[in-house]
Design a protein around this nucleic acid. Structure first.
Lengths: 226, 226, 226, 226
DNA sequence: CATGAATGAGGGTTCATTCAT
DNA sequence: AATGAATGAACCCTCATTCAT
């Protein structure tokens, strides 16, 4: 999405501009993010910016795609899940990855967060985000969990997927705030090795598992209001 | 937050302005919401608007407070929970109230949703929203649940509160979309009486209860990644 | 097309702005005409201009409509044609009116001239100009001339109308340049009373009449090239 | 006007650039024509363009001169007029040449058309165009016509030249539209051989001749307004 | 000789806000 | 109390042109 002009830029300059653009779009809703700000802080001419990106939207889209890719790349920085693990082991690993992402790339994570949660003024792009987003992913994961007998058969997979997804989007911020994590807990494996993170994650997973995992002795009581 | 001038306005005019302001702030992120739009559609002078509200922020804050109050008032429109019901009965009732709110006052609900989910450019206001918001409420609720033995003792009440809260904020939209609810399912009790709503809510509560309710036979297996 | 804000402006201010806008759009092709110029010279804020006109196009359209109306109004300033006169008497009167218009309202005339002759970037507006323009008018005039026997029957009315129209659009500038007419030949009737104008007009009409007027003795020799 | 650098360019590249420049300046008023467009479509560097032409004006001027020359060259593509033909035979031939030019080189013709009809922002260039343009040519032609007795002595040669010129500039578009001519009526002689073109041209010439040709029986009635 | 990044003035437009009437 | 004209900074974006490589 950026032009070749941008791609061919000296890496330092390119990174400076990217950094400032990321800060701007992470720090403000799309409408409040200002190209003028970016160029002012980058010390480049307005015209230059528009030789790098066709327009504000193109720049924004690029950042979102960048964040998406970065999120995929990040998996290598966290030990892979036990190949034999079940759905919940896998989910736990997903969650760890997410915290790691939010902690090591907080601005990119914030841009993705905004892209999902706020209105962006480009219906096509919003549509694409949803499609490639996590909703389908979680839905399939949970459906398979039922088939495989990992998930209790009485669980509505759609509801379970909804639950998992909303937690997935929000728990990172919760962890970071509750454990006062900072960017300085940065080095690779850092998250994975921290006892407090693992403990908190266990608390969360315990509830999730108790909620949806198959368990012969477990049977919900259907309460009715009034 | 509005001036006396506004308060003393003939009710019709006041309502018109409020209605249009609600539409504007519900329909757009704060920065994209436009006072010019409001006054144009209301057919009032720009200056008049600024005699009703000190500025854009004051208007916005008022709407948020309005929505908050309205949400409190709404409880009368839904049958009260069984006085003897436990935490989960009470939660179920809370959730029902929330769907009812989102369905009967969709614009106000949307404003509140935006206020929590998007940045608003006023740190003080954001802070206040959090403080008066639901976080504390759910935390206390869950803590008491543990004390009373309704909630499994191994549950971290903070985590459970976090879970409940994020679900609480998002499930309304999920219900509305999944059940294709419209404003026309509007009359009082409507939500309460709909089988599909109750059934879906049950699916959700079942998972929540299974996740955190005390149950002698229930014991989470602590999975570890690898 | 201008807003009420503009309409309600003190007449002096309104006229100043109109004057400067007319100068700008008469003096430059649409793309080169600059709102910034207008406001700078008017000494008003840019924002003010946009309270008067929705956008550049609206301002331009208004000027074109103004010029069109003014051209219609102007007929009262020239003695009416002899009620019994024939097509050519009427055409002569039309031409006189046109010179008068171009001389007394040169900038408005220039705006109309541009509107017909240059590309304007609004297809709809161009279309409307053509429709309401002179093409149809001259076509009907000449067709009727043939019916009434004023025009020679061998004349193609379409071609004659084309001829009349292109002359009509261009001869004003020709007159003004050839006779060195200036705005100071301004007073009402001035054009009508000037011998040189009438003489030149006669020269023009003579040719036109000789070209298309019915005349028993007149018969074109059909020349062929080679 | 282009630099030697441009002249020495491989002919294909040169033609590509010329072609695109012609398209741009034919398709848009001078101010709306964009060098950026040209270089983008040509796939050359911006800097290269400025090594071929000093600036936008130089490029434009070159195209105008090119079109002028091409128009002179074109005469060889149409059968020469009968050497013994009179002024009107010659004019007819001129007109044919003009239609041929507009039809076979529509973009160049359009550039010339714009150059005469629109303002170009270079007074000197405009001046030169007028001087070398057709005005003097037609004036001399008509004056000689009077001397030779081909043109009626009562005809003002200046007025007749003006008439001829405005027709000359506009009738090509009229013909093309009325006869729905397209570039595909393209091959040499095509125009010359088409019956409809010849017939329409005859209609036009008939009027012109009737208007200004010497004819013993012809005498205009001098009409006066009222 | 070609390149293409850099420029910055200028374009049209919108905005929240003020203040004299 | 209501008005609505005035403001001007800020917005996104385009342009012809330059110049170091």
């Amino acid at each position: 999405m950026p032009t070749d002009t941008f791609t061919n830029l000296p890496i330092e300059k390119r990174n400076l501009i990217l950094h400032l653009a990321i800060e701007e779009f992470a720090g403000h809703p799309y409408h409040a993010a200002s190209i003028s700000n970016i160029v002012r802080e980058a010390g480049i001419a307005k015209g230059s910016f528009y030789q790098y990106f066709a327009d504000k939207k193109a720049c924004y889209r690029y950042l979102v795609e960048m964040a998406t890719k970065e999120k995929l790349n990040i998996v290598t920085e966290i030990p892979a899940p036990d190949p034999g693990c079940d759905l919940f082991g896998y989910l736990r690993w997903q969650f760890l990855t997410q915290v790691h992402f939010e902690l090591t790339r907080p601005r990119l994570a914030q841009i993705l967060y905004r892209a999902f949660i706020e209105d962006i003024p480009f219906p096509d792009m919003a549509e694409e985000l949803r499609r490639r987003g996590t909703t389908q992913f979680f839905k399939q994961l949970l459906s398979q969990g039922i088939l495989h007998g990992t998930v209790a058969p009485w669980v509505d997979p759609d509801v379970a997927a909804f639950l998992t997804e909303v937690i997935f989007y929000q728990f990172g911020k919760y962890f970071i705030e509750r454990l006062s994590l900072t960017k300085d807990d940065f080095t690779s494996h850092a998250i994975y090795d921290r006892q407090d993170v693992q403990a908190l994650l266990t608390s969360l997973m315990d509830i999730l598992e108790a909620g949806i995992k198959r368990n012969p002795n477990q049977q919900a009581n259907y309460l009715r209001v009034n």
